[in-house]
Amino acid sequence: MQVEGLSINLATIREQCGFAEAVDICLKHGITAIAPWRDQVAAIGLGEAGRIVRANGLKLTGLCRGGFFPAPDASGREKAIDDNRRAVDEAAELGADCLVLVAGGLPGGSKNIDAARRMVVEGIAAVLPHARAAGVPLAIEPLHPMYAADRACVNTLGQALDICETLGPGVGVAIDVYHVWWDPDLANQIARAGKMKAILAHHICDWLVPTKDMLTDRGMMGDGVIDLKGIRRRIEAAGFHGAQEVEIFSADNWWKRPADEVIATCVERYRNCC
Rank of each mutant, 00 (worst) to 15 (best):
L99V: 12
V100K: 08
V100D: 07
L101T: 03
G105W: 03
G105C: 11
L106K: 05
L106C: 04
P107Y: 08
G109N: 05
G109V: 07
G109A: 03
K111V: 08
K111Y: 08
K111N: 14
D114W: 03
A115Y: 05
A115Q: 12
A115R: 12
A116Q: 13
A116F: 07
A116D: 13
R118K: 15
M119I: 02
E122K: 02
G123K: 05
V127M: 04
V127L: 01
R132V: 00
A133V: 02
A134Y: 02
P137S: 14
P137I: 08
L138P: 01
A139Q: 06
L143V: 13
H144T: 08
P145D: 12
M146T: 09
A148D: 11
A152Y: 13
C153T: 08
V154Y: 10
V154G: 10
V154S: 06
T156Y: 11
G158Y: 07
G158K: 10
Q159M: 04
A160I: 04
L161S: 14
C164W: 00
E165T: 12
E165I: 11
E165N: 08
T166K: 12
G168Q: 07
P169F: 05
G170F: 01
V171Y: 00
V171S: 00
V173M: 03
A174Q: 05
A174E: 05
I175D: 12
D176T: 05
V177P: 00
H179W: 10
